[in-house]
Write a protein that binds this DNA or RNA. Structure first.
Lengths: 226, 226
DNA sequence: AATTGTGAATTCCTTCACAGCC
DNA sequence: GGCTGTGAAGGAATTCACAATT
């Protein structure tokens, strides 16, 4: 494994590849070439090979990649072999939806706490058993529950103060849904999921003279983020 | 206004600038320099100037930009001066949260329809008055309600078929939350909001030898997304 | 004096194209 | 023959640095 700096874009694509491989595996395929992957999912085969080659030689020349093996490698690279425990701050529509969402568990993510400052919400329990805790206890519960990722799902005006609370608790990975640019200290990673940015890009496309960019692939977070 | 092709990244940033300007305006500032904007929000001043200069000369040398004026320009550029009407497909946790979300309206986005195929959900009404309609009627309602943006908030296995429905109805701008890469025809814009990609990038960061990339700015989108 | 708008320089990312291997 | 891994080429995006402007 090389010590070269890996770009965020490469990391995001690994995540996409993993999803594609899961799908192919579910269909019963056991082996795949970068070309076949690229064709099926509108990717570039050289890019797939290059992305993977940063981390090792996972393929066999002439044959391609063994799907199960490659899935295991990417899972390891992305740190998905050990579970991640998420604390969601903000028990509004979005926060509650996140805490209820069942699409995380297959990838070893689990929501273990939901936090709010509203007394009328604190103490309530979601269908899946997650209870709403007082944000004042975030630090305590984060430690008890070994929360390593925090999601900020509060209105923009509350986001800065929530960020401070999260940082004080020592959580270093943050997913921010509030529509503003939060800045963390070095050593802390903040990923922004900004729905307004995405919607406004769609609006730009619709408003465009004839059409801003008629390509349908690539992402937010890739951009982005997406 | 130039006819050069504008990159998606530039468009995403315009959206961010708009949010920053709104915040500064709310504080009472009337004028701002690219340097001041950059300092406050961890951006690059040359990039701000370049992004804006694609669309016109909005600043005054020696003085900077008038905030209200610039907000109006960006609003116009992004097509936010006329309202956008969103149809959300999938009345699960996420879809319902989106339809209830009140952060869209300030930017001229309004959710006018929520769709599902589950008979037990059809006919129900959200607190804000949005009713759940049968996805079978999507095309009809999309036309009646002048839906111009569709959001896909269904499980991955249902996403392709929902996409077909949306395309048949003639909607050309789509926000996809399902964790798979959808491909649309030319002339249709699909933006992906992939929470698993974002979470997995955080996981990679946490797993990293010492830390993958200790910069806290940029997006998913932005890409990525935001 | 301050700040924009922009060509030039730089850095980063993607794609090509092929040597090397199975 | 088919496919990977990768150096080299090409293309894009960012940042620098300064002439132009108020």
């Amino acid at each position: 494994m090389k010590v070269e700096k890996i770009s965020e874009l490469t990391v995001n694509r690994l995540s996409v590849y993993l999803r594609c491989l899961n799908e192919m595996r579910a269909r019963g395929d056991e082996t795949v070439s970068s070309q076949a992957l690229a064709d099926r999912y509108n990717l570039n085969s050289a890019q797939i090979r290059k992305d993977l080659a940063y981390f090792g030689e996972f393929g066999v020349r002439g044959l391609g990649y063994n799907i199960d093996e490659l899935r295991a490698h990417i899972t390891k690279i992305l740190g998905l072999d050990s579970p991640h425990r998420i604390g969601v701050v903000g028990a509004g529509n979005l926060g509650t939806a996140l805490a209820n969402y069942d699409g995380f568990s297959p990838q070893n993510f689990v929501v273990v706490g939901l936090f709010d400052s509203d007394p009328s919400k604190i103490g309530k329990r979601l269908p899946n058993g997650v209870a709403v805790s007082d944000i004042a206890n975030f630090s305590l519960i984060a430690e008890q529950q070994k929360i390593d990722i925090a999601a900020i799902a509060v209105p923009a005006r509350a986001a800065e103060s929530v960020l401070d609370t999260i940082l004080e608790a020592g959580v270093q990975a943050i997913l921010n849904f509030a529509p503003l640019r939060l800045k963390g200290p070095p050593g802390v990673k903040i990923k922004h999921v900004d729905l307004l940015v995405s919607l406004e890009a769609l609006s730009y496309f619709l408003a465009g003279p004839e059409s801003a960019a008629p390509d349908a692939v690539l992402a937010s977070e890739m951009d982005e983020a997406f």
